[in-house]
């Protein structure tokens, strides 16, 4: 049987209009096209300002795409995320698509376990079950157990990032979007995060990540889209 891409980005462009500066136009990305097959890892690479995060945020719809299509397929159905209404996007986020931002933002004074377990709580799991599952994932990511009941707002950059990744991975989304997962990590933690992403890949989670660390790209990526000045510069697999 012919396998269809899970995600099919076609001629995606994003232009920001800054009204405060006399409707100045800023190009985020231009004519971006690529496909992601189910269960594969695609890396979007390039220097800072190349437009990597813009593409990722358009797929998650934190940004409204200006032009182009983002075709997402599940089962026999498909939808254009670029044109999907807000309700549709919320449903996809709840059921299908996870996102790991560069920076963790959470309610102050909520414990790491509850931050990580929140998706399970939303789905109706008991607090005990959510905490247990969150704890086992945090253990895998080697977050010291003494921090589990502490508040992530006070954590170091690396600890925060582990909470951030654990939060998005707990319910195993079909598509995981990851923005610079290893940027603020020491070598040891970086290895743990790479290991977790590799395991998710084995569990058939499709991953699109922005990366600028060559080592991580080489260890994880099946495909690579190199961006420069908001455009695709080359694609490789």
């Amino acid at each position: 049987m012919h396998v269809q891409p899970l995600l099919d980005v076609r001629d995606l462009s994003k232009t920001f209009v800054l009204h405060g500066l006399g409707a100045k136009l800023i190009t985020g990305c231009r004519n971006i096209s690529f496909q992601v097959m189910p269960g594969t890892f695609l890396a979007i690479t390039g220097v800072s300002g190349a437009g990597k995060s813009t593409v990722l945020k358009c797929i998650y719809r934190s940004y409204l795409p200006t032009d182009g299509q983002i075709i997402y397929r599940w089962g026999e159905s498909e939808t254009d995320i670029a044109r999907l209404d807000d309700r549709g996007v919320l449903n996809l986020r709840r059921l299908d698509i996870g996102y790991v931002s560069q920076f963790l933002r959470v309610v102050p004074r909520v414990s790491a376990l509850e931050v990580v377990g929140e998706r399970l709580l939303v789905e109706g799991a008991s607090l005990g079950d959510a905490r247990r599952e969150a704890g086992s994932l945090l253990a895998r990511l080697k977050l010291p157990e003494e921090l589990w009941d502490a508040f992530p707002a006070n954590f170091s950059g690396g600890e925060k990032q582990r909470v951030n990744i654990a939060r998005a991975c707990l319910t195993k989304p079909r598509l995981l979007l990851v923005d610079e997962p290893t940027a603020s990590l020491d070598p040891g933690t970086k290895r743990d995060v790479i290991e977790l992403l590799r395991e998710l890949k084995h569990e058939k989670v499709t991953i699109v990540a922005t990366l600028h660390d060559r080592e991580v790209v080489e260890q994880l990526a099946d495909e690579e889209v190199q961006m420069s000045g908001g455009r695709v510069w080359s694609t490789a697999s």
Binding site: L18, H19, G20, K57, R61, S62, Y63, L64, D86, V89
Partner: peptide, 22 residues
């Protein structure tokens, strides 16, 4: 303007929303 909360905060469209977020 109405939108997803993260979109309103990260990619506001209306001049007034941009002013508010900025």
């Amino acid at each position: 303007e109405t939108g997803l909360t993260d979109q309103i905060l990260e990619d506001p469209q209306h001049p007034y929303t941009q002013l508010l977020v900025n």
